[in-house]
């Protein structure tokens, strides 16, 4: 297995298999995900990118019949350990989905939701500050500061996706997982999200699944190529795109299949 040890690794996966019922969707994946960098997962449809992404914050627990074996460490702690509570884990490893999915609540409440359930703010001013900070980080504050009580669903698609990022950021996560965050957006909104990822990458470890080679090349520093449930190749984005070691990676990047 190709495997690159990073000096500052945030998440470490070792020999991870994922099953849906009897079907193996992820086969023996080991990877180190670095802090302060953007890692891109690429690969043809159905190869298991989303599945692997979901194992990183145990969202697979919510799928009936899904089973994970192997080891995943967050700062050296096994996240599938009995002592690790998925509630706390998911606050530390946030997630942004393919389709923007704001809650049917106001913009303010969408962002305040996480801090509220985790009890991160004692009083209203503190909550206001958290909401403002999160919306600012998500680059949305100036657009919505006068309409915080409007429904989150009333925003445009791109704004909704940034709201979802703000929502994730509001609980001060350490890792943010993004599953094709731009696939439902137009090019302008996509560009904004990409800028945002660039801004956020210093504070968080970011993992992004994408079908767009260009996007992976633009936003990520590290890229992992998945194929049929296996991680075929993992390395610096530049190297993967200019000089892939594996034949299959090359075929995929040059558009031979996928």
């Amino acid at each position: 297995m190709p495997e690159a040890k990073l000096p500052d690794s945030k998440l470490t996966a070792r020999n991870v298999d994922v099953f849906y019922g009897d079907k193996k969707a992820i086969d023996d994946v080991s990877i180190d995900i670095g802090n302060g960098v953007v890692t891109a997962f690429i690969g043809p449809s159905g190869c298991g990118k989303s599945t692997f992404l979901r194992t990183l914050n145990r969202m697979n627990d919510t799928i009936a019949g899904a089973r994970v074996t192997g080891q995943i460490l967050l700062d050296g702690e096994d996240i599938y350990d009995r002592d690790m509570d998925p509630v706390a884990l998911r606050a530390r490893v946030g997630m942004v989905f393919q389709k923007p999915n704001p809650f049917p609540k106001s913009i303010y409440e969408n962002v305040a939701y996480g801090p509220r359930i985790h009890g991160l703010a004692q009083a209203k001013p503190e909550m206001d500050a958290i909401v403002e900070k999160a919306l600012t980080r998500a680059g949305l504050w100036n657009e919505v500061k006068d309409r915080l009580t409007d429904a989150g669903t009333a925003l445009s698609g791109g704004q909704q996706q940034r709201l979802c990022i703000a929502r994730a950021v509001a609980v001060s996560p350490e890792v943010i997982l993004m599953d094709e965050p731009c696939s439902a957006l137009d090019p302008i909104a996509t560009a904004r999200i990409e800028e945002l990822i660039e801004d956020l990458k210093d504070r968080y470890a970011i993992v992004i699944v994408t079908h767009s080679m260009q996007q992976a090349a633009r936003v990520s520093q590290r890229t992992a190529f998945f194929h049929l449930g296996k991680m075929v190749e993992y390395g610096d984005t530049d190297q993967i795109f200019t000089n892939p070691r594996e034949e299959r990676t090359k075929d995929y990047i040059t558009g031979r299949y996928g």
Binding site: D75, D85, V87, G119, L120, S172, E174
Partner: peptide, 19 residues
């Protein structure tokens, strides 16, 4: 950062939420 999630108050809170 992960201290927020390690301190006893938060641990108690999470226990309460799980209950």
């Amino acid at each position: 950062m992960s201290n927020t999630w390690k301190n006893p108050d938060m641990a108690r809170r999470i226990a309460r939420r799980n209950a």
